[in-house]
Lab assay of single mutants.
Amino acid sequence: VKVFRALYTFEPRTPDELYFEEGDIIYITDMSDTNWWKGTSKGRTGLIPSNYVAEQ
């Protein structure tokens, strides 16, 4: 598990995607895809765009 911080707010387009706000901490559990990672924030899990976060 790696810890990342959201650089921007992300509004999901599908139920599989995770909503998060700029500054949120996201725990990444799967980075197997280059563009979409699986992450958890505020008790919810979903896909996030990798270019919206920076490693802490």
Rank of each mutant, 00 (worst) to 15 (best):
Val1Cys: 15
Val1Glu: 11
Val1Asp: 08
Val1Thr: 12
Val1Lys: 10
Val3Ala: 11
Val3Leu: 12
Val3His: 06
Phe4Val: 12
Phe4His: 05
Phe4Gly: 02
Phe4Met: 10
Arg5Asn: 05
Leu7Phe: 03
Leu7Gly: 03
Tyr8Leu: 10
Tyr8Arg: 14
Tyr8Met: 13
Thr9Gln: 06
Thr9Asp: 09
Thr9Glu: 04
Phe10Leu: 05
Glu11Gly: 04
Glu11Arg: 13
Pro12His: 03
Pro12Gln: 03
Pro12Ala: 11
Arg13Leu: 10
Arg13Gln: 12
Thr14Lys: 11
Thr14Arg: 13
Pro15Thr: 10
Pro15Ile: 12
Pro15Trp: 07
Pro15Gln: 10
Asp16Phe: 12
Asp16Ser: 11
Asp16Gly: 11
Glu17Gln: 15
Glu17Val: 04
Glu17Leu: 08
Glu17His: 13
Leu18Val: 06
Tyr19Gly: 15
Tyr19Leu: 05
Tyr19Trp: 12
Tyr19His: 09
Tyr19Lys: 10
Tyr19Glu: 10
Tyr19Met: 09
Phe20Cys: 04
Phe20Pro: 02
Phe20Glu: 00
Phe20Thr: 01
Glu21Leu: 09
Glu21Lys: 10
Glu21Tyr: 06
Glu22Ile: 12
Glu22Asp: 05
Glu22Ser: 10
Asp24Ala: 07
Asp24Met: 05
Asp24Asn: 03
Ile25Asn: 03
Ile25Lys: 04
Ile25His: 04
Ile25Leu: 14
Ile25Gly: 01
Ile26Gln: 00
Ile26Tyr: 01
Ile26Trp: 02
Tyr27Asp: 06
Tyr27Asn: 06
Ile28Trp: 00
Ile28Pro: 00
Ile28Ala: 02
Thr29Met: 10
Thr29Pro: 01
Asp30Gly: 04
Asp30Phe: 05
Met31Trp: 11
Met31Lys: 07
Met31Gln: 13
Met31Tyr: 07
Met31Ser: 08
Ser32Phe: 08
Asp33His: 08
Asp33Trp: 04
Asp33Val: 06
Thr34Trp: 09
Thr34Ala: 15
Asn35Tyr: 15
Asn35Val: 14
Trp36Gly: 01
Trp36Ile: 06
Trp36Ala: 03
Trp36Tyr: 07
Trp36Asn: 03
Trp37Tyr: 13
Trp37Ser: 00
Trp37Asn: 00
Trp37Gln: 00
Trp37Leu: 04
Lys38Asn: 07
Gly39Met: 02
Thr40Leu: 08
Thr40Lys: 09
Thr40Cys: 15
Thr40Gly: 06
Ser41Ala: 12
Lys42Thr: 07
Lys42Phe: 08
Lys42Trp: 06
Lys42Ala: 13
Gly43Arg: 03
Arg44Met: 13
Arg44Leu: 09
Arg44Thr: 07
Thr45Ile: 10
Thr45His: 13
Thr45Pro: 07
Gly46Tyr: 03
Gly46Asp: 01
Gly46Asn: 00
Gly46Lys: 02
Leu47Gly: 02
Leu47Lys: 09
Leu47Arg: 08
Ile48Cys: 05
Ile48Glu: 01
Ile48Arg: 02
Pro49Ala: 05
Pro49Met: 06
Pro49Val: 02
Ser50Glu: 03
Ser50Asn: 04
Ser50Phe: 06
Ser50Arg: 11
Asn51His: 14
Asn51Thr: 12
Tyr52Trp: 06
Tyr52Met: 12
Ala54Lys: 12
Ala54Trp: 11
Ala54Pro: 01
Glu55His: 10
Glu55Ala: 13
Glu55Gly: 07
Glu55Lys: 10
Gln56Val: 15
Gln56His: 15
Gln56Pro: 09
